[in-house]
Write a protein that binds this DNA or RNA. Structure first.
Lengths: 144, 144
DNA sequence: TATATACTTGAAAAGCATTATTATTTGAGA
DNA sequence: TCTCAAATAATAATGCTTTTCAAGTATATA
């Protein structure tokens, strides 16, 4: 997965941002924990292993920057903090989330199947849909 | 809409909660502003007109109570605060939300059309779906 | 190479929505 | 009316996030 890290670093530099050790460490932490939907504090703790002197504010700042650049996405599970996930080419397309109310695991769903609903909404409500957030709450296969 | 207020008051008393003037005022405020998706601060300001001595903490407490009793539902638009909507018999069934990125208006969508997607998810992921939150972001008819 | 300029950072303070605490008040049944 | 658990107002505390600011670092320019 070396190419992913490289391409993200390139993306940063292309936009005129400096690739500091802190930003590099935060990017690495997110890449290494892909699929885990870590929150800011958790990312901070991972990053501190390689970069012990980093400040929490830098993590918040960098996550905001990466979100603005669409390199990561926010995910709000209503658990009191913001979680993040990597935007890869594969999950660039819409995907939904299953949230297990028992173990709090977050599962990504590749199935989309919202096309018809969206077309109906755009027609009936004359509303231009640009983004969607779809979350299902319930019990996952491990907890049933 | 007198019956709605009455039935909600009954519901409170049936569960052993006292019908205080504060709770009555908060219920009335939510009923009178049905469809507006007010946040806690906004509800507080409406309630203060009829009940000026009320404290903000009481509003938070009561909204939590009403949510626990499924008389209202939380709606998180990621705008930094929690919003609420009344659970009437009509909207008891699932409904989604359109959020206009221009005027920030929130439109309720009666169309459901999620049945097939949910069945596929339950089958493919062995996940029992108990609730869902679906939000579409874009531009509403008034702003296009 | 020296220097000006803009960008980053860590630490600490501030912001903001929400929750907990506590002393006081109140609703509703005996 | 009296009693007492429940509810309240005021305020402090909490937790996540953003801002401030002084200091450090990198990049461009002369």
């Amino acid at each position: 997965m070396e190419n992913l890290a490289d391409s993200l670093r390139e993306k940063l530099k292309d936009k005129g941002y400096k690739l500091t050790p802190q930003r590099r460490a935060i990017l690495d932490a997110i890449i290494e924990n892909q699929g885990k939907h870590l929150n800011t504090e958790e990312i901070y703790n991972v990053v501190k292993e390689k970069c012990p002197e980093i400040g929490l504010a830098t993590v918040y700042r960098t996550l905001q920057l990466l979100d603005d650049m669409s390199m990561i996405s926010r995910l709000n599970i209503d658990d009191g903090c913001m979680r993040y996930e990597l935007n890869t080419d594969e999950n660039e397309h819409q995907h939904h989330h299953l949230i297990c109310e028992v173990c709090n695991d977050i599962i990504e769903v590749e199935l989309d199947l919202l096309g018809y609903l969206e077309k109906e909404i755009e027609k009936k409500y004359n509303f231009i849909i640009k983004d969607r957030k779809v979350k299902f709450f319930g019990v996952c296969s491990k907890c049933r």
